[in-house]
Design a protein around this nucleic acid. Structure first.
Length: 831
RNA sequence: GCGAAAGUGGCGGAAUUGGCAGACGCACCAGACUUAGGAUCUGGCGGGGAAACCCAUGAGGGUUCGAGUCCCUCCUUUCGCACCA
């Protein structure tokens, strides 16, 4: 029978139907101009790398963002919900090598495939604002920004030790090295190489990046802490020790200058420049230092720097402590890092654990110079690292507290010219050069006569040549394209060579979300007025794995753009949400583990709605989610129940007109409906526990189903049925947009459900008029009594005491105390 | 080693401020309908006990009329940091 067939929920027919309708209505998900008068809301999910396949992590990320966007649309906001492609990067080159497909073709093909997947999922993006970072229309602005930053001294070139990933055959920024390994290749140890590289002076913003974290209250504390640690600000003092004989200065950095009278040696990093002059005269020393360098390098590469045993070699030289002229030996030690502070320390074994370990091993003097603040206290064992103490054995500074002494010692250093207070950051400048093809060409020219010459703005973009042979040989692939390399100098017109490094792909993602606000702009990266309207992003959603990388680079970029006068906001995003991972069988999904679940499979078997809704239902969004296919089937069954319920009573609702009348079943259902509405609305505003939102809708549907007999008998007034069904569908719309759209239509609605106002809970209707109050005796549950919702303490107590079970349990005993919590519980303390 | 988060049925999870532990879903069991069911519907489902009841939120203590929730000690897991002077 045709009618029976119609009662089946079939996502395979309704989802493509609506996908087509939505595609035909470009205004549906489009942001409106500022003049629309609605409050704006910018919801953004991190843009994907176009690998060619969405994975479940994407599905989860986008399901969260899409639910929020749809909710905000229904709340009447002007919503910007864009999507784009982080389209430069190494996999395209690897694919080119493997399949002989040009990177551009491969990438654009993947984008098309993933876009189809997104559309199949029913994600509501404004594709008119789509951004693809590998297209010249986009990357020319990377070049433009590079030049502006160059003009401001925020871009420079220097020879330095860099992280080299042999797998990527290019350098990596510090942020892209995790435990000595490449962030993309867990099993590839990063080597140190000496290369001339381009850097962004992110350290110029170190303090501001740190201070700004305080204001980012809408960011997870975890991310803020990670950034704080990464920036690694530390206050201290730099002091010069003078090398005896030569007069050379060794500048040390210390956070504990108050302990300087306890310095019994000076320790240099193996790569300290001064060692060269020592070693020139001493071949044996040179050999031993080289060995230390080698060891340190290996430890760094293996990621266990920090755990290797401390050792070092004496240089045979001595240095003089500028405060008291004391002569101390100069050593080279493997635990001193050249790239932190000054690469040299004063070693105070009495008050530093590392120095203590080292001094004990080599028999270097250990001296106590700090005593506990409390003179009655027992002398603590060394090393005593507390800063709560007073100086001893410290000449004129004896008796001062550590804090006061530090200040006085710094003043003295300034006065005498051998040092000063300083602030050191762990954050290093961002190395952006990559010796790769598939990235933004760096817009600089090397002229024999004029040196470094920026490409003039009117010659932008520097186009990445299309015809290129990707090979595995080292060096920048662009260097092998003569047409690209050989240019005339824009300044003198003479022969010159174009820079062949390309930019780190994190440059692309540092500002892409500004481009969304004005994606078609051909004369500027974006219109400042439009950006000012939309920024900051109201809600940014992505994985926590970018806590240091993308999220610190994009904060930096925002500050640079602000200082260029392009924007007025200090931070890119007001709120950040980091969703948990999707795991299966207790492990992160990965090809090597063979536990990957394909979104396409899920969509084909259960539909996009069930797949998305399961992603929201299976766990709160901030926690890891265990993918269980049976769970998707369960959600799919639930959607089927909704389908049958709504289609069954849609004719009643369509015919209904008058205002709700009184009906016992009707009011109970209405109460549940309004309670559910309130719960979900509240969750969107704060908690984001979409798993319990879905559960709440399930409860509502269960109750409606339980009332099926009354509904079928027409005992529930038609207007009530109408409100029940309409609101149910509206509540479902952010989570299961296809089904909601279909049922909305079946309810006789003509306009898109997305344009319908979000339901408002009426507290009057939501209120319970009778409550079940648990009654305890000595904290143990005895019974539950029913009382009117507005019953006062006395009334509740009376009802509880009158209860049979309570009477039986308390018979013959005295009631010492009665605790009544209105609307909650009664507890009798009985002896 | 330091820091953070977490630990609740067979499983995913719920319990928003200290107030009925286990909502909702999965799996499982029983039943109904059915030519059939991986469809649908009904009921059951933490452990012990015939029952009344008792026990139970990683372990042990504490505060409280009352603790999954607060405090202390410990265990386990995950994540982040890890010679940063």
């Amino acid at each position: 029978m045709a009618e029976e067939k119609e009662l089946r929920y079939d996502p395979a027919t309704i989802e493509p139907k609506w996908q087509e309708r939505w595609a035909a209505d470009p205004t549906l998900y489009a942001a409106e101009p500022a003049s629309c008068g609605k409050p704006k809301y910018y919801v953004l999910e991190m843009l994907p790398y176009p690998s060619g396949q969405l994975h479940m992590g994407h599905v989860r990320n986008y399901s969260i963002g899409d639910a929020l966007a749809r909710h905000m649309w229904m709340r009447g906001y002007n919503v910007l919900h864009p999507m784009g492609w982080d389209a430069f990067g190494l996999p395209a080159e690897n694919a080119a090598l493997k399949n002989n497909t040009p990177p551009r073709e491969w990438t654009l093909g993947n984008i098309a495939a993933m876009k189809r997947q997104m559309q199949r999922l029913g994600l509501g993006y404004d594709w008119a604002t789509e951004v693809t970072t590998c297209l010249p229309e986009y990357y020319r602005w990377n070049q433009w920004f590079f030049l502006r930053m160059y003009e401001k001294g925020l871009v420079y070139r220097k020879q330095s030790k860099v992280n080299w990933c042999p797998e990527c055959a290019t350098v990596l920024a510090n942020e892209q090295v995790v435990d000595g390994r490449c962030w993309r290749h867990d099993d590839t140890i990063v080597e140190q190489r000496d290369l001339e590289q381009w850097f962004f002076r992110i350290t110029a913003y170190a303090q501001e990046l740190l201070d700004g974290l305080e204001q980012l209250e809408g960011w997870p504390e975890k991310v803020r802490t990670m950034q704080r640690n990464w920036i690694g600000r530390s206050e201290g003092t730099e002091v010069d020790f003078t090398v005896e004989g030569s007069g050379e200065k060794i500048r040390v950095f210390t956070t504990r200058v108050d302990t300087i009278f306890g310095a019994t040696s000076v320790q240099l990093a193996p790569e300290h420049p001064l060692i060269a002059s020592f070693a020139a005269l001493d071949a044996e020393l040179k050999a031993r230092v080289d060995q230390l360098i080698e060891e340190q390098k290996k430890a760094k590469e293996a990621g266990d720097i920090g755990t290797i045993e401390k050792h070092g070699v004496p240089t045979g030289r001595y240095a003089l402590n500028p405060y008291n002229g004391e002569r101390v030996p100069v050593w080279v030690a493997n635990y001193i890092l050249m790239d932190y502070g000054t690469g040299a320390i004063m070693s105070v074994p009495g008050h530093d654990e590392r120095d203590f370990e080292f001094a004990t091993k080599y028999g270097i003097a250990i001296r106590r110079v700090i005593a506990p603040a409390d003179p009655a206290a027992e002398e603590p064992a060394l090393p005593f690292t507390s800063e709560d103490g007073v100086l001893v054995n410290s000449g004129a500074y004896n008796g001062l507290s550590c804090a006061v002494a530090e200040k006085k010692l710094q003043d003295e250093a300034v006065k005498e010219g051998f040092g000063q207070a300083t602030v050191t950051f762990r954050l290093k400048d961002w190395g952006v050069s990559r010796q790769r093809y598939w990235g933004t060409p760096i817009p600089m020219i090397h002229c024999e006569r004029d040196g470094l010459v920026p490409v003039p703005d009117d010659q932008l973009p520097v186009i990445l040549p299309a015809q290129i042979e990707i090979t595995q040989q080292g060096g920048s692939p662009l260097g092998r394209v003569p047409d690209f390399v050989h240019v005339t100098c824009p300044r003198c017109g003479g022969p010159a060579r174009r820079e062949t490094d390309t930019m780190d792909t994190f440059v692309d993602s540092s500002w892409y979300f500004y481009r969304y606000t004005d994606a078609g702009n051909a004369s500027a990266p974006f219109n400042p007025a439009t950006a000012q309207y939309w920024f900051p992003i109201d809600q940014y959603i992505g994985g926590v794995e970018h806590a240091i990388l993308h999220l610190i680079y994009s904060r930096f970029w925002t500050k640079v753009m602000r200082d260029l006068g392009l924007i007025t906001n200090d931070e890119p995003a007001r709120r950040l949400f980091t969703q948990g991972m999707v795991i299966k069988d207790g492990a992160k999904m990965s090809k090597s583990k063979g536990n990957v679940v394909s979104p396409d499979d899920m969509v084909a078997r259960y539909g996009a709605d069930a797949t998305r809704m399961y992603a929201l239902f299976a766990a709160p969004p901030d926690r890891d989610l265990d993918w269980q296919e049976d769970g998707v089937a369960g959600v799919s069954r639930f959607l089927g129940r909704v389908w049958r319920l709504v289609t069954k009573y849609a004719p009643v609702a369509r015919a209904a007109q008058a205002a709700p009348a009184d009906s016992q079943t009707g009011t109970a259902l209405l109460r549940k409906l309004h309670q559910t509405t309130a719960k979900i609305t509240q969750d969107f505003e704060g908690r984001w526990h979409f798993n319990t939102c879905v559960a709440a809708i399930m409860e509502l549907v269960n109750e409606m189903q339980a009332a099926d007999a009354q509904l079928a008998a027409g005992e529930v007034p038609a207007p009530v049925v109408k409100e029940l069904l309409r609101t149910l569908v509206l509540l479902l719309a952010p989570f299961a947009p296809y089904l909601a759209a279909e049922l909305w239509e079946q309810l006789g609605e003509e306009d898109a459900i997305l344009r319908a106002p979000w339901p408002v809970s009426n507290p009057e209707l939501a209120r319970e008029n009778e409550l079940e109050i648990p009654v305890q005796i000595n904290g143990k549950l005895v019974t539950v009594v029913r009382v009117a919702a507005d019953a006062d303490q006395k009334r509740i107590e009376a009802v509880a005491l009158a209860d049979e079970k309570v009477q039986a349990r308390s018979a013959g005993k005295s009631i010492a105390k009665v605790i009544v919590v209105p609307r909650k519980l009664v507890n009798l303390v009985v002896k």
